[in-house]
Write a protein that binds this DNA or RNA. Sequence first.
DNA 1: TCCTCCATGTAAACTGTTACATGATTTG
DNA 2: CAAATCATGTAACAGTTTACATGGAGGA
Lengths: 175, 175
Amino acid sequence: MSLRHAMLGLLANEPASGYDLMKGFETSLSNVWPATQSQVYGELAKLAKAGLLEVSAEGPRGRKEYAITSDGRMELHRWLTEPQPDTPRRSDALLRVFFLNHLTPLEAITYLTGEAERASRQHEALTELEGRIDWGDDPLSVNGRLAFEYGLRFTAMREEWARWAAEELDKTRGE
Amino acid sequence: MSLRHAMLGLLANEPASGYDLMKGFETSLSNVWPATQSQVYGELAKLAKAGLLEVSAEGPRGRKEYAITSDGRMELHRWLTEPQPDTPRRSDALLRVFFLNHLTPLEAITYLTGEAERASRQHEALTELEGRIDWGDDPLSVNGRLAFEYGLRFTAMREEWARWAAEELDKTRGE
DNA sequence: TCCTCCATGTAAACTGTTACATGATTTG
DNA sequence: CAAATCATGTAACAGTTTACATGGAGGA
């Protein structure tokens, strides 16, 4: 149910078309809340119908620029400040860990070192991306940096854990 | 698409009914792959139809016990060893971070310290749970311990990050 | 003219959540 | 006999993904 809030958040900075929003989802938000074009256009219509957005301008090629309404801002604020539940999240990667005993010890260790490498690659990709981004003083940059740091810490943690887990299995294997 | 693999994984240890599986989803797998009763019964039927499971026994109250077939084991093995993509994951919590500039600095800091507290509570809940579990030598325990350690590291990382981020915002606020 | 980018939408399939509905068996 | 537990299923709805479908505008 957060796609709508991602869209409200982007439109709270400036009015934009569905096409413009897609660029936001493909770049800054791609690691946090990916969305498809189908979803975005569908949700724009729903949000406009609900009065949280309105068409603020029309351009060539049927372009419709949407702006957030004051109801939309209220909803965004409500979402940002509502009490958060302690959410359990799904994880493919961890699910596999539960069933590692159905592999040979060697295969299991291969899986875990693979995980470590994936995390490491993601960490590197983030570091590289961080260097390429032109960080400014604008709000999206300030918040983007916080999210970035989260990504760095998360990938580092995952790599360390996977290496540790592989070693644990390796120990057991010897017995 | 991993519900089916969670079910195959559980049934690869021992045959079970839908009701039995639900206990697995509510306990060991609850933090990794929650599932509802509706899903489980529906998927059992599909898996049986696809030949990955078969009804191995029937009991009182219409109980049907399912066992994994060799096709099912092959599919489980394939899933465990297939190359993993570097998956982007959705995160409500991080999405909010991107839009923190639409709150007052004080509200934003409140959000982040709230995040820290949630992470801390989850960490404590895990530590407490770890003590209560009767860890054995069975495969689920061995792998469960690895997953547990992941949870502990993850919640610790999240708390540290949120405290750091709150401080960052606090610095900016002073300027 | 051709290619790329801009731009919007619809339809089908799948996954997941919540609520509803039913009834047998065991235990206190 | 009442309550808890065992046990299975269906229906409606919400969110996501993939594929399809169309066409205008601008630049080389």
